[in-house]
Protein backbone atom coordinates (compact mmCIF):
# COMPACT_ATOMS: atom_id res chain seq x y z
CA UNK A 1 0.00 0.00 0.00
CA UNK A 2 2.78 2.37 0.95
CA UNK A 3 3.70 3.39 -2.59
CA UNK A 4 0.16 4.31 -3.53
CA UNK A 5 -0.56 6.65 -0.66
CA UNK A 6 1.52 9.76 -1.12
CA UNK A 7 -0.97 12.54 -0.48
CA UNK A 8 -2.75 13.05 2.86
CA UNK A 9 -6.11 12.93 1.07
CA UNK A 10 -5.43 9.46 -0.27
CA UNK A 11 -4.48 8.36 3.18
CA UNK A 12 -7.62 9.82 4.70
CA UNK A 13 -9.70 7.95 2.15
CA UNK A 14 -7.88 4.75 3.04
CA UNK A 15 -8.42 5.37 6.78
CA UNK A 16 -12.14 5.85 6.19
CA UNK A 17 -12.23 2.70 4.11
CA UNK A 18 -10.58 0.70 6.89
CA UNK A 19 -12.96 2.26 9.41
CA UNK A 20 -15.95 1.15 7.44
CA UNK A 21 -14.57 -2.38 7.15
CA UNK A 22 -13.85 -2.79 10.85
CA UNK A 23 -15.26 -5.83 12.60
CA UNK A 24 -18.60 -5.08 14.16
CA UNK A 25 -21.14 -7.25 15.86
CA UNK A 26 -24.66 -6.36 14.68
CA UNK A 27 -26.08 -8.42 17.53
CA UNK A 28 -24.24 -6.45 20.21
CA UNK A 29 -25.19 -3.14 18.55
CA UNK A 30 -28.81 -4.18 18.41
CA UNK A 31 -28.66 -5.23 22.06
CA UNK A 32 -27.23 -1.84 22.99
CA UNK A 33 -30.00 -0.07 21.08
CA UNK A 34 -32.65 -2.19 22.81
CA UNK A 35 -31.18 -1.50 26.25
CA UNK A 36 -30.85 2.26 25.68
CA UNK A 37 -34.37 2.60 24.30
CA UNK A 38 -35.65 0.46 27.17
CA UNK A 39 -34.12 2.86 29.67
CA UNK A 40 -35.44 5.96 27.90
CA UNK A 41 -38.89 4.43 27.69
CA UNK A 42 -38.81 3.40 31.37
CA UNK A 43 -38.20 6.98 32.49
CA UNK A 44 -40.52 8.69 30.01
CA UNK A 45 -43.43 6.36 30.78
CA UNK A 46 -43.11 6.66 34.57
CA UNK A 47 -45.30 9.69 35.05
CA UNK A 48 -45.87 11.18 37.51
CA UNK A 49 -42.47 10.05 38.74
CA UNK A 50 -43.21 10.97 42.35
CA UNK A 51 -46.77 9.69 42.55
CA UNK A 52 -50.03 11.61 42.64
CA UNK A 53 -49.86 13.10 46.11
CA UNK A 54 -49.35 16.87 46.32
CA UNK A 55 -45.85 17.89 47.36
CA UNK A 56 -46.75 19.28 50.82
CA UNK A 57 -48.64 16.12 51.74
CA UNK A 58 -45.68 14.02 50.69
CA UNK A 59 -43.32 16.12 52.79
CA UNK A 60 -45.61 15.86 55.80
CA UNK A 61 -45.86 12.09 55.43
CA UNK A 62 -42.11 11.88 55.18
CA UNK A 63 -41.60 13.90 58.36
CA UNK A 64 -44.11 11.75 60.22
CA UNK A 65 -42.41 8.62 58.98
CA UNK A 66 -38.99 9.78 60.18
CA UNK A 67 -40.47 10.71 63.54
CA UNK A 68 -42.07 7.28 63.91
CA UNK A 69 -38.76 5.55 63.34
CA UNK A 70 -37.56 6.78 66.73
CA UNK A 71 -38.16 4.08 69.39
CA UNK A 72 -41.43 4.68 71.29
CA UNK A 73 -39.93 5.06 74.80
CA UNK A 74 -37.41 7.58 73.45
CA UNK A 75 -40.20 9.55 71.81
CA UNK A 76 -41.90 9.84 75.19
CA UNK A 77 -38.93 10.53 77.42
CA UNK A 78 -36.55 12.09 74.93
CA UNK A 79 -33.78 10.03 76.48
CA UNK A 80 -31.93 7.65 74.15
CA UNK A 81 -30.81 5.45 77.05
CA UNK A 82 -34.39 4.15 77.17
CA UNK A 83 -33.84 2.57 73.78
CA UNK A 84 -31.61 -0.17 75.14
CA UNK A 85 -34.11 -2.10 77.31
CA UNK A 86 -36.67 -1.63 74.54
CA UNK A 87 -34.34 -3.20 71.98
CA UNK A 88 -33.36 -6.00 74.32
CA UNK A 89 -37.04 -6.85 74.88
CA UNK A 90 -37.65 -7.07 71.16
CA UNK A 91 -34.62 -9.31 70.81
CA UNK A 92 -35.51 -11.88 73.45
CA UNK A 93 -39.20 -11.69 72.67
CA UNK A 94 -38.98 -12.99 69.10
CA UNK A 95 -35.93 -11.41 67.46
CA UNK A 96 -33.40 -14.11 68.35
CA UNK A 97 -35.73 -16.93 67.41
CA UNK A 98 -36.55 -15.29 64.08
CA UNK A 99 -32.85 -14.83 63.37
CA UNK A 100 -32.16 -18.47 64.16
CA UNK A 101 -34.99 -19.63 61.90
CA UNK A 102 -33.73 -17.42 59.10
CA UNK A 103 -30.30 -19.06 59.26
CA UNK A 104 -31.74 -22.56 59.57
CA UNK A 105 -34.05 -22.12 56.58
CA UNK A 106 -31.26 -20.67 54.40
CA UNK A 107 -28.86 -23.47 55.36
CA UNK A 108 -31.35 -26.26 54.80
CA UNK A 109 -32.38 -24.80 51.44
CA UNK A 110 -28.89 -24.33 50.01
CA UNK A 111 -27.78 -27.82 51.11
CA UNK A 112 -30.89 -29.28 49.50
CA UNK A 113 -30.23 -27.40 46.27
CA UNK A 114 -26.57 -28.46 46.18
CA UNK A 115 -27.45 -32.10 46.78
CA UNK A 116 -29.87 -32.12 43.87
CA UNK A 117 -27.58 -30.22 41.48
CA UNK A 118 -24.42 -32.26 42.04
CA UNK A 119 -25.58 -35.53 40.43
CA UNK A 120 -27.22 -33.56 37.60
CA UNK A 121 -23.96 -31.84 36.59
CA UNK A 122 -22.51 -34.69 34.49
CA UNK A 123 -25.85 -34.81 32.69
CA UNK A 124 -25.71 -31.07 32.02
CA UNK A 125 -22.08 -30.98 30.86
CA UNK A 126 -21.64 -30.16 27.19
CA UNK A 127 -18.62 -32.44 26.98
CA UNK A 128 -19.72 -35.43 29.05
CA UNK A 129 -23.41 -35.72 28.30
CA UNK A 130 -23.22 -36.86 24.68
CA UNK A 131 -22.94 -40.06 22.72
CA UNK A 132 -19.20 -39.53 22.32
CA UNK A 133 -17.88 -37.74 25.45
CA UNK A 134 -14.89 -35.48 24.64
CA UNK A 135 -15.29 -36.67 21.03
CA UNK A 136 -14.08 -40.13 22.06
CA UNK A 137 -15.90 -43.18 20.75
CA UNK A 138 -17.81 -44.77 23.61
CA UNK A 139 -18.62 -48.05 21.84
CA UNK A 140 -21.78 -48.89 19.98
CA UNK A 141 -24.94 -47.72 21.62
CA UNK A 142 -28.52 -48.54 20.89
CA UNK A 143 -30.71 -45.95 19.19
CA UNK A 144 -32.55 -45.32 22.42
CA UNK A 145 -29.39 -44.69 24.42
CA UNK A 146 -28.07 -42.45 21.65
CA UNK A 147 -31.28 -40.45 21.72
CA UNK A 148 -31.08 -40.20 25.49
CA UNK A 149 -27.57 -38.74 25.35
CA UNK A 150 -28.57 -36.34 22.64
CA UNK A 151 -31.55 -34.99 24.58
CA UNK A 152 -30.46 -35.07 28.18
CA UNK A 153 -27.93 -32.20 28.14
CA UNK A 154 -30.21 -29.50 26.70
CA UNK A 155 -33.09 -30.84 28.77
CA UNK A 156 -31.27 -30.56 32.10
CA UNK A 157 -29.87 -27.14 31.21
CA UNK A 158 -33.33 -25.91 30.25
CA UNK A 159 -34.61 -27.30 33.54
CA UNK A 160 -32.04 -25.12 35.30
CA UNK A 161 -33.18 -22.06 33.31
CA UNK A 162 -36.82 -22.74 34.21
CA UNK A 163 -36.20 -23.32 37.90
CA UNK A 164 -34.28 -20.07 38.27
CA UNK A 165 -36.72 -18.08 36.19
CA UNK A 166 -39.47 -17.97 38.83
CA UNK A 167 -38.65 -15.70 41.78
CA UNK A 168 -38.40 -17.57 45.08
CA UNK A 169 -40.97 -15.29 46.69
CA UNK A 170 -43.55 -16.31 44.13
CA UNK A 171 -42.78 -20.03 44.53
CA UNK A 172 -43.11 -19.77 48.31
CA UNK A 173 -46.36 -17.85 47.96
CA UNK A 174 -47.85 -20.58 45.74
CA UNK A 175 -46.48 -23.47 47.84
CA UNK A 176 -47.94 -22.07 51.05
CA UNK A 177 -51.41 -22.22 49.58
CA UNK A 178 -50.85 -25.92 48.87
CA UNK A 179 -48.83 -27.19 51.82
CA UNK A 180 -50.13 -24.86 54.48
CA UNK A 181 -48.23 -22.41 56.62
CA UNK A 182 -45.05 -24.28 57.63
CA UNK A 183 -41.36 -24.06 56.79
CA UNK A 184 -41.28 -26.54 53.89
CA UNK A 185 -42.66 -24.04 51.34
CA UNK A 186 -40.00 -21.54 52.32
CA UNK A 187 -37.16 -24.07 52.17
CA UNK A 188 -38.43 -25.62 48.95
CA UNK A 189 -38.86 -22.25 47.27
CA UNK A 190 -35.31 -21.21 48.11
CA UNK A 191 -34.01 -24.63 47.07
CA UNK A 192 -35.79 -24.67 43.71
CA UNK A 193 -34.63 -21.19 42.75
CA UNK A 194 -31.03 -21.80 43.87
CA UNK A 195 -30.97 -25.14 42.13
CA UNK A 196 -31.15 -23.32 38.82
CA UNK A 197 -28.54 -20.77 39.82
CA UNK A 198 -26.08 -23.28 41.26
CA UNK A 199 -26.64 -25.42 38.17
CA UNK A 200 -25.55 -22.53 35.97
CA UNK A 201 -22.61 -21.39 38.13
CA UNK A 202 -21.23 -24.83 38.87
CA UNK A 203 -21.90 -25.86 35.27
CA UNK A 204 -19.78 -22.96 34.04
CA UNK A 205 -16.93 -24.01 36.35
CA UNK A 206 -17.11 -27.55 34.96
CA UNK A 207 -17.14 -26.31 31.35
CA UNK A 208 -14.11 -24.10 31.94
CA UNK A 209 -12.00 -26.70 33.68
CA UNK A 210 -9.06 -28.41 31.99
CA UNK A 211 -10.38 -31.74 30.72
CA UNK A 212 -7.10 -33.56 30.06
CA UNK A 213 -7.33 -35.80 33.17
CA UNK A 214 -10.98 -36.53 32.45
CA UNK A 215 -10.17 -37.49 28.86
CA UNK A 216 -7.45 -39.83 30.13
CA UNK A 217 -9.80 -41.45 32.62
CA UNK A 218 -12.52 -41.85 30.03
CA UNK A 219 -10.12 -43.27 27.48
CA UNK A 220 -8.97 -45.72 30.16
CA UNK A 221 -12.46 -47.14 30.32
CA UNK A 222 -14.24 -45.28 33.12
CA UNK A 223 -17.90 -44.43 32.70
CA UNK A 224 -19.28 -40.91 32.52
CA UNK A 225 -20.30 -40.54 36.14
CA UNK A 226 -17.18 -42.12 37.57
CA UNK A 227 -15.04 -39.93 35.28
CA UNK A 228 -16.89 -36.92 36.69
CA UNK A 229 -16.57 -38.04 40.30
CA UNK A 230 -12.90 -39.05 40.17
CA UNK A 231 -11.29 -36.53 37.82
CA UNK A 232 -13.42 -33.39 37.43
CA UNK A 233 -15.02 -32.96 40.84
CA UNK A 234 -11.86 -32.99 43.01
CA UNK A 235 -10.34 -30.22 40.88
CA UNK A 236 -13.31 -27.87 41.03
CA UNK A 237 -14.32 -28.61 44.60
CA UNK A 238 -12.95 -25.40 46.09
CA UNK A 239 -14.57 -23.14 43.50
CA UNK A 240 -17.82 -25.01 44.07
CA UNK A 241 -17.55 -24.21 47.77
CA UNK A 242 -17.00 -20.51 47.07
CA UNK A 243 -20.17 -20.31 44.96
CA UNK A 244 -22.01 -22.39 47.53
CA UNK A 245 -21.27 -19.86 50.24
CA UNK A 246 -22.05 -16.91 47.97
CA UNK A 247 -25.50 -18.37 47.38
CA UNK A 248 -25.89 -19.20 51.06
CA UNK A 249 -25.41 -15.52 51.89
CA UNK A 250 -28.10 -14.61 49.38
CA UNK A 251 -30.36 -17.28 50.83
CA UNK A 252 -30.08 -15.74 54.29
CA UNK A 253 -31.19 -12.42 52.86
CA UNK A 254 -34.04 -14.00 50.90
CA UNK A 255 -35.17 -16.15 53.85
CA UNK A 256 -35.52 -12.96 55.89
CA UNK A 257 -37.91 -11.52 53.35
CA UNK A 258 -39.86 -14.72 52.74
CA UNK A 259 -41.03 -14.47 56.33
CA UNK A 260 -43.31 -11.67 55.13
CA UNK A 261 -45.55 -14.49 53.90
CA UNK A 262 -46.22 -15.41 57.53
CA UNK A 263 -43.40 -17.66 58.73
CA UNK A 264 -41.32 -16.73 61.70
CA UNK A 265 -38.23 -15.15 60.21
CA UNK A 266 -37.38 -11.48 60.54
CA UNK A 267 -39.61 -10.76 57.55
CA UNK A 268 -42.71 -11.74 59.49
CA UNK A 269 -41.82 -9.40 62.35
CA UNK A 270 -41.16 -6.64 59.82
CA UNK A 271 -44.47 -7.20 58.04
CA UNK A 272 -46.42 -7.36 61.31
CA UNK A 273 -45.02 -4.17 62.76
CA UNK A 274 -45.30 -2.29 59.46
CA UNK A 275 -47.86 0.50 59.56
CA UNK A 276 -48.35 0.45 63.33
CA UNK A 277 -44.93 0.19 64.94
CA UNK A 278 -42.47 1.72 62.49
CA UNK A 279 -39.84 1.91 65.21
CA UNK A 280 -40.02 -1.86 65.78
CA UNK A 281 -39.96 -2.52 62.08
CA UNK A 282 -36.90 -0.37 61.65
CA UNK A 283 -35.19 -2.20 64.48
CA UNK A 284 -35.78 -5.59 62.84
CA UNK A 285 -34.57 -4.23 59.49
CA UNK A 286 -31.37 -3.00 61.13
CA UNK A 287 -30.99 -6.31 62.98
CA UNK A 288 -31.21 -8.32 59.76
CA UNK A 289 -28.95 -5.87 57.94
CA UNK A 290 -26.27 -5.89 60.59
CA UNK A 291 -26.13 -9.69 60.65
CA UNK A 292 -25.53 -9.66 56.89
CA UNK A 293 -22.90 -6.92 57.12
CA UNK A 294 -21.05 -8.82 59.84
CA UNK A 295 -21.19 -12.00 57.79
CA UNK A 296 -19.94 -10.03 54.80
CA UNK A 297 -16.97 -8.55 56.66
CA UNK A 298 -16.21 -12.00 58.04
CA UNK A 299 -16.19 -13.64 54.62
CA UNK A 300 -14.11 -10.76 53.21
CA UNK A 301 -11.48 -11.41 55.87
CA UNK A 302 -11.73 -15.16 55.31
CA UNK A 303 -11.19 -14.84 51.58
CA UNK A 304 -8.20 -12.53 52.07
CA UNK A 305 -6.75 -15.05 54.52
CA UNK A 306 -7.35 -17.96 52.09
CA UNK A 307 -5.44 -16.12 49.35
Amino acid sequence: MSGALTSPDDRLARVDELRRQRARSPFLRLSAVVVVSGIVWAWLSSTPLLGRLPAERRWLNFKNFLNELVPAPVRQSGDWSDALPWAWNLLIDEGFLALLMTFAAATAAIILAGTVVLPLLPLASRRLARVDPFGLRAGNTGTLAAMFWKMIGPLVRFGFVLSRSVPEYLIAFLLISMLGLQFWPLVLALAIHNLGILGRLWGEVVENTDDAPAVRAFAAGQGRSSTFATTILPGVFNRFLIYFFYRWETCVKDATVLGMLGLLTLGKLIALSKGFFWDQMFFYVLLGGSVIVIGDLFSMALRRWLR
Binding site: S2, L5, L18, R19, R22, A23
Partner: peptide, 11 residues
Protein backbone atom coordinates in the same frame (compact mmCIF):
# COMPACT_ATOMS: atom_id res chain seq x y z
CA UNK B 1 2.17 1.66 7.00
CA UNK B 2 5.87 2.11 7.74
CA UNK B 3 5.95 -0.89 10.12
CA UNK B 4 3.95 -2.94 7.63
CA UNK B 5 0.50 -3.46 9.15
CA UNK B 6 -1.53 -0.53 7.80
CA UNK B 7 -4.55 -2.74 7.06
CA UNK B 8 -4.82 -3.58 10.79
CA UNK B 9 -5.63 0.02 11.78
CA UNK B 10 -9.07 -0.81 13.15
CA UNK B 11 -8.39 -4.39 14.27
Amino acid sequence: DRVGIEEKLYT
